[in-house]
Amino acid sequence: MLAYLIRRLGQSVLVMSVMATIVFFGLYMVGNPVDLLINPEDDLAAQEAAIARLGLDQPILVQFWHFLQGVVQGDLGTSFVHNQPALELILSRLPATLELAAFAMLLAVIIGIPLGMFAGLYPKSPVSKGIMAGSILGFSTPNFWQGLMLIMLFAVFWRVLPAGGRGETAELFGIPFSFLTLDGLQHLFLPALNIAIYKISLVIRLSQAGTAEVSLQDYVKYARARGLSTRRIVGTHILKNILIPIVTVLGLELGSVLAFAVVTETVFSWPGMGKLLIDSIGLLDRPVVVAYLMLTVFLFVVINLVVDLVYSLLDPRIRTKGKNA
């Protein structure tokens, strides 16, 4: 187990270093941020001073060396545009993205599981067929266009929900959150729904297949024979048994929410990490792009590691395999 853990950690560090190197040198070849950041009406001395302040006058290898030194100390450089440490800037946007992701996951579970269980319990009903067809549509619809259509319906035609922004926030533990105010909740709903629709389709599929399978098991038949109410059979015996695969898949999907948050945040002007990344790419704000990448790779490495570890805890076969190898 320990050897496995060490090997996985070593691999993770390697992945992060390779990614950081590729992105650092890759971004260096694209455009010159100096053109965007310096006031062209300044005199030459002022321009040179600004370049020196950003560290852009050094040879690239020296810049890379400074970058590496910083990384080891947890300093991922300073944003050219915001003049603020890049990591701090991204972390300040992190709560908004996490709030969106958590709310989307919640929607996926509370909408997806009942619909999927219904389709699994009554497979012949036209409602079930409608639910399953809808889930196919939910898989195929491009996320960004779906967001536009939600804005069109709810904000332009019906005028019931705002089209973008984060709304009024309230602080909890010193961090602003939208879900604590009514206005914030209204702003949160559409972007969260936009991320959730794909997950809802996924949860519908999983719970429909699970329910159809579990309903045929002997313990469900036995529960029926004992005369338990349908509500108790469905709510306890079936629900508990279909939850395992749903929890696993949703855990794995947590990472992809980060990726789709980039699209959704752009559509709904939600001030999270994803919007920051797109803005920074546009402005050639190199340190922020590199820091975003490092943080995302780090998050993914952690998620994958945790999933693997949980698996090896749940399934003893994986552990024994590691021992033999």
Binding site: V23, L27, M29, V30, G31, A259, V262, L277, I281, V289
Partner: peptide
């Protein structure tokens, strides 16, 4: 997204 940030 990251690749295109690099490639343009």
């Amino acid at each position: 997204l990251i690749l295109l940030a690099i490639l343009g």
